[in-house]
């Protein structure tokens, strides 16, 4: 459905997006994951034809969007990162306006407003002005405005930033439902848990570049599967680090610069790696203050690839 080929965008001296190539197939729920400043929103803006890329191509259903930007607009639902609503209009009036822009009117518009407000869960507050809504409700309405015209392709740019858990859950459920019903969705976030929960295909970006892509399972497997041990030592020495590096099955070792006593060890294969770590620590006289064992996730994938956390 959508393909970007070597998409590049520069703002002054900053290379915001660097030769990005991604693909979104019809009916898929694709996640675009990356920390703040990775280039996700810039990528989204280019796909939504808000800004022009410096080079590269964006193909939508085979059509080059640079030459025919109108090709995507009719079927695109766009949920921007910022709340893009008229604060002094009611929820209903906002939906009316945005629906009209997409060619809806009369009974059809009315019906769609009712349907969408059920989906996003704000039916009882439609008559109130948006400025009276809570943050979560504004976010939901922000999404609702993008759903009125039943888009083929929905782009959601960090739709759950700064909202309450109830609203977040509501949104995530809504996204799953919409995708089940056949909507293709491109979902960007820096919340790994959301992308893990929702997306089948995941692209990971950092500093404008695509650093990994694939299904969740493939990414985790490429990261080596296994388990992850995070250990906090009372003291750390070169000998300890050297010893840890020589542990059987170790794939990656990461030390936080701001917390050098905490070491994250990624092991491949099956579990059971905690015991050797404790034994080594005891042997070398570096008492453990705390230890955590977990299965690897996208955070650890990212950590492995970049040496920093997603939330850095």
């Amino acid at each position: 459905m959508l393909q970007t080929i070597d998409l590049t965008k520069r703002f002054g001296a900053t290379l915001a997006v660097d030769a990005l190539s991604i693909e979104v197939t019809k009916g898929d729920l694709v996640g675009l994951l990356g920390p703040n400043g990775a280039g996700k929103s810039t990528t989204i803006s280019m796909i939504a034809t808000l800004i022009e890329p410096d080079s590269g191509k964006i193909l939508y259903n085979g059509q080059d969007l640079m030459a025919h930007p109108e090709a995507i607009r009719k079927g695109l639902g766009f949920v921007p990162q910022n709340i893009a609503l008229y604060q002094d209009l009611s929820g209903r009036d906002n939906l009316k306006f945005w629906g009209r822009l997409y060619g809806l009117k009369g009974d059809l518009l009315k019906r769609r407003i009712d349907e969408v407000s059920e989906i996003i869960g704000i039916s009882d507050r439609l008559k109130d002005k948006v400025k009276a809504y809570s943050g979560g409700m504004k976010r939901r309405l922000n999404i609702g405005a993008a759903l009125l015209h039943q888009p083929d392709f929905l782009i959601m740019d960090e739709p759950t930033v700064g909202i309450d858990p109830q609203s977040r859950n509501h949104i995530l459920d809504a996204v799953k439902t919409l995708n089940r019903e056949g909507m293709t969705i491109l979902y960007t976030s820096h919340y790994m848990e959301e992308v893990e929960e929702l997306c089948r295909t995941i692209y990971i970006m950092d500093l404008g570049k695509l650093i990994a892509s694939g299904t969740k399972e493939a990414l985790l497997a490429a990261a080596g599967g296994g388990e992850e041990v995070t250990a906090k030592f009372e003291t750390v020495s070169d000998a300890l680090i050297s010893g840890l590096k020589n542990l059987n099955g170790l794939i990656a070792l990461a030390q936080m610069p701001e917390a050098p006593q905490t070491v994250t060890l990624s092991f491949g294969g099956d579990g059971g790696h905690l015991k050797p770590v404790i034994e080594l620590a005891t042997e070398l006289g570096h008492p453990l203050l705390s230890v955590d064992v977990s299965k690897p996730n996208l955070e650890s994938v990212f950590l492995k690839l970049t040496g920093k956390a997603l939330r850095d």
């Binding site: 921007p80 709340i83 893009a84 609503l85 008229y86 822009l101």
Partner: peptide
């Protein structure tokens, strides 16, 4: 300033 301009630009108008 309110980002409704950007949203309008994305619409098929």
């Amino acid at each position: 300033h309110n980002y409704t301009w950007q949203r309008t630009l994305v619409a098929p108008v």
